[in-house]
């Protein structure tokens, strides 16, 4: 069953069409990679699905519910969490508070102003677990804004996955990392998204072919192919539009 279905989704900025009629189905439990050249509209597509932008036309269904007109927080509460291509954290809060805030809604605290956070044992244990998973134990009480880049990316990931959402969307999670940092991050992504649905934008083809069950290729705001990795490799349109050199390198 599809957990996420896009039908004829369009997005224009002013008169410029950026997303030009996308149909896409993401199956429950699959790892779905989105690839495509810079400026193809991958991040914009993420913003449309997660509610940051409204669609110009078309519909998006998540777990059978129409979400194209919903606010980001409503969509998040349905079980969709995401990370950002450009690090987007709470810089003056420390790592622990960043993660704990990301857990609050799913742990049922809502807007409570009558419970003391430090007394919430389960919540704090969960927070510590997530911090251990992303390997930031030693930095737990540092302001997030003062962390090194790779650590901020790990935190970005942690905020996205903390709540245990069913659908996780990661926008270039390892961009800008060194090779070994990227390897760690991929292992981490594999671990924390086990049993969940993952949609990931990624440029590094070895990572994509390694991690993804299916790949969609986005070019100029259109999905020109969606298929399993082997077929994407062999797809002549994809070769032509985008992949050519990269695949022969890999």
């Amino acid at each position: 069953m599809s957990i996420l279905s896009l039908r004829n989704v369009h997005k224009n900025f002013g008169i410029t069409p950026i997303i030009r009629g996308i149909d896409l189905d993401v199956e429950e439990g699959e790892k779905h990679a989105i690839i495509g050249p810079n400026g193809a509209g991958k991040s914009t597509l993420f913003h449309l699905i997660s509610g940051r932008y409204g669609v110009s036309e078309g519909s998006i269904a998540f777990k059978g519910q129409q979400i194209q007109n919903k606010q980001p927080y409503e969509i998040n509460r349905l079980g969709l969490a995401r990370s950002f291509q450009v690090t987007n954290i709470f810089p003056r809060l420390n790592v622990f508070e960043n993660i704990r805030c990301a857990l609050l809604w799913s742990e049922g605290y809502k807007y409570s102003f009558w419970q003391l956070l430090d007394r919430q044992k389960r919540l704090n244990e969960k927070t510590e677990q997530v911090i251990a998973q992303i390997g930031l134990e030693k930095r737990a009480f540092y302001p997030a804004g003062e962390l090194a880049y790779a650590q901020q990316r790990a935190l970005e990931l942690g905020i996205a996955v903390a709540s245990g959402a069913e659908l996780i969307m990661l926008d270039e999670p390892v961009a800008g990392m060194s090779h070994s940092e990227a390897e760690n991050a991929v292992a981490l992504i594999r671990k924390i998204t086990a049993g969940k649905t993952l949609i990931m934008v990624e440029h590094d083809m070895s990572i994509v072919f390694d991690l993804a069950d299916r790949i969609s290729v986005l070019v100029y705001g259109e999905v020109i192919a969606t298929d399993v990795p082997e077929n994407i490799r062999g797809n002549s349109r994809v070769q032509e539009a985008y992949l050519g050199e990269v695949v022969s390198d890999a």
């Binding site: 980001p72 927080y73 969490a81 810089p91 605290y109 807007y111 102003f113 009558w114 003391l116």
Partner: peptide, 27 residues
Amino acid sequence: LFTKTPAGRLANAVRDNPERAEFIGYS
């Protein structure tokens, strides 16, 4: 004590980055 509650801590989060707060479930 308010600063130690979920609402108080989220106030800091929203101060720092209102956009990201919306993606962790909070208006």
